[in-house]
Amino acid sequence: MTETSRTRAGEQQAEALLRFERAARSWLNGGAAATAAAAEARGLTEAGVVTTAVLVEGDSDRAALQALAESNGRDLGDERVAVLPMGGAMSIRRYVEALGSRGLDLELHGLCDQGEVRFFERAGMRASAFEICDPDLEGELIRALGLDAAEQVLDEQGDLRLFRTFQRQPAQRERPAEQQLHRFLGTTSGRKEQYGRELALRAAADAVAPAPLRRLLAAV
Rank of each mutant, 00 (worst) to 15 (best):
R22C: 07
T188V: 15
T4W: 13
D159S: 03
G124E: 00
D148I: 03
T51Q: 13
L137R: 05
R8K: 14
L154K: 00
M1K: 12
G10L: 12
G124F: 11
G48E: 02
L201H: 12
Q180S: 03
A149K: 13
E156A: 14
G100I: 01
G158H: 02
A204C: 08
R175A: 13
D61E: 15
R161N: 06
E156W: 05
K192F: 09
E198P: 00
A207W: 14
L108C: 04
A34C: 06
S91A: 15
D75K: 06
Q180K: 12
P176T: 06
A209V: 09
M86Q: 06
E121Q: 14
G10Q: 10
D75I: 06
A98T: 12
A24T: 11
G77P: 01
A16L: 12
V96D: 02
E156F: 07
Y95H: 10
G31M: 12
W27G: 02
A69Q: 07
R25E: 01
E15Y: 12
A123E: 06
V49A: 11
A219Y: 11
D206M: 12
A205Q: 15
R173F: 07
V83H: 14
E121D: 13
L137F: 03
P85C: 04
S91I: 00
S60P: 00
A16K: 13
L111T: 03
Q152M: 10
W27V: 06
E174W: 08
D206C: 07
W27L: 01
S189L: 14
L162Q: 09
Q152F: 10
A219S: 15
C112D: 05
R62A: 08
A177P: 01
G110V: 07
R175G: 04
G87H: 12
D134F: 13
D61F: 10
S71F: 03
R214V: 15
R202C: 08
